[in-house]
Design a binder for these strands. Structure first.
Length: 430
RNA sequence: GUGAACGUAGCUCAGUUGGCAGAGCACUGGGUUGUGGCCCCAGCGGUCGCGGGUUCGAGUCCCGUCGUUCACCCCA
């Protein structure tokens, strides 16, 4: 026990009993994504490190201290994917998707890797569901992406979800704001915490995340991003809001909402769920009109989001949402005598070939033990074989829901099992 | 990276001022020569995270270390 190996820090096993709820969430997500016209893409779990350096931005926390980067045996610098947008953008460029009818709408469900300190809802490997739409700068697309995510949360039955919205401006107007903010921060440098002094130099917009009392006070009087937006950005933002209202979506304007990835332009948004505790962000994203060009592609705009599967599951559990019941066998086979084991094994094979889910004992349990397993397995019927049945060529078929028993030949028993299997599968799809 | 709390059976947890390692659940068998769920009985299962120290004696006290959890930070 002393040297027992465990899952690496910040990782976890997804156990059989946890699978149904997770698979249900993913199935609903894929249904919603498909309904909005998005198609699935899978990209490698690791990429050339330069993709993330250029795409996410070298000043971000993700790139500076959270990437799993290593040199492979060929001397290449490789990084485990920390987020989904840059890899999908890379695939878009690499496969010439800018020549397809635009926009190109893609979705993914993939593990992400970040070297973080684990806590509730935060892991070193976590799964994200996300969408990316390339090739249109229409504000309707921003609003659609946001509406799509809101629809997903609603169909999952999540409660207490709030949408926060901001515009980050574009490369025309944001530099002017950054300059004004940096200048304001520099004038009040003595009142800032050590970290915000660093942020002033690297990425002044991030100071809005600071929770230190003194910094918050100073930032309350800081220049506001909305006052610096250029006319096109302002118009875009107004149209996004109008389209949110067309979808009857509530949102909170938050001009301090700055996300941790440098590629965002114009729209940024984040859904927060108060059921989650400290890691309240359940999903977020925005527009990234310069990303594709930054990683070496044509100047193609885009917009998308990522949402954390573990945080959705956590919120669902705290909302009391139950997953679907795990599948049970239709038939459990019981050998009452040692001499019946071969016939039972043979019968299990035949049932399975006929498409019926059947299970049996493999550890030489007593008859009572086998019946106990049959009951626990959730099977509809126990097919019982002992010396009497072997001699007369029939099966004892016990209906485990009613306890009634009858003697049937193999053909009649198979018919019964097929009927029960059909019933079980229709119950599942409903 | 920083701080706090917690590490005892597969799981959830008791364990008094330091004095024989416990319970419930789960698992296996029996109670019924060939029959599940409920009940009863029995069994299986532990280097008390790991390493040092104090002590006649440490699960218990001290130090270190690793891990988990929560929070900061950041994000999904």
């Amino acid at each position: 026990m002393a040297d027992l190996l465990t899952a690496p820090k910040g990782t976890y096993d997804i156990l059989p009993e946890q699978q149904p709820l997770r698979r249900w969430v993913i199935a609903i997500a894929e249904d919603v994504f498909t309904r909005y016209g998005y198609r699935r893409i899978d990209t490698p779990m690791f990429e050339d490190t330069r993709l993330f350096l250029r795409g996410i931005g070298e000043a971000t926390d993700i790139v500076r201290k959270e990437m799993y980067t290593f040199t492979d045996l060929g001397g290449r610098s490789i990084t485990l994917r920390p987020e989904g947008t840059a890899p999908v953008a890379r695939a878009y460029v690499e496969h010439g998707m800018h020549t397809l009818p635009q926009p190109v709408k893609l979705y993914y469900h993939s593990p992400m890797f970040r070297y973080e300190s684990p806590q509730a809802g935060r892991y070193r490997q976590h799964y994200q569901l996300g969408v990316e739409a390339f090739g249109s700068s229409a504000p309707e697309l921003d609003a659609e992406v946001i509406g799509l995510l809101a629809t997903l949360y609603r169909e999952l039955g999540l409660r207490q979800v709030e949408l926060r919205l901001n515009s980050m401006g574009c490369k025309e107007c944001r530099p002017g704001y950054s300059k004004a903010l940096r200048s304001y921060l520099s004038q009040n440098f003595d009142g800032l915490c050590a970290e915000c002094r660093e942020r002033t130099r690297l990425n002044p917009l991030r100071t809005f995340d600071c929770k230190v009392e003194g910094c918050r006070g100073l930032l309350a009087d800081a220049p506001r991003l909305p006052d610096y937006l250029c006319a096109p950005c302002r118009g875009h933002h107004e149209r996004v809001k109008a389209c949110l209202e067309l979808q009857e979506l509530q949102y909170v304007d938050d001009h301090t909402l700055v996300r941790g990835l440098d590629y965002y332009t114009r729209t940024t948004f984040e859904f927060q769920c108060s059921l989650l505790g400290a890691q309240s962000g359940i999903g977020g994203g925005g527009r990234y009109d310069d990303l594709v060009a930054t990683i070496g592609g044509p100047p193609v705009p885009g917009v998308g989001f990522g949402t954390g599967v573990e945080r959705i599951l956590l919120a669902l559990e705290r909302s009391g949402v139950q997953g679907p019941r795990p599948a049970s066998p239709v038939v459990y086979l019981v050998a009452l005598a040692e001499s019946a084991r071969s016939a039972v094994f043979r019968l299990a094979h035949e049932l399975r070939q006929a498409g019926i889910c059947a299970d049996l004992d493999y550890v030489e349990r007593s008859p009572k033990g086998q019946m106990k397993q049959a009951g626990r397995s959730g099977a509809r019927y126990a097919f019982i074989l002992g010396e009497e049945e072997l001699a007369t060529g029939v099966l004892t078929v016990r209906d485990l829901t009613t306890g009634e028993e009858q003697r049937l030949d193999a053909a009649a028993a198979g018919k019964l099992a097929r009927a029960a299997a059909r019933q079980a599968s229709t119950a599942f799809t409903e």
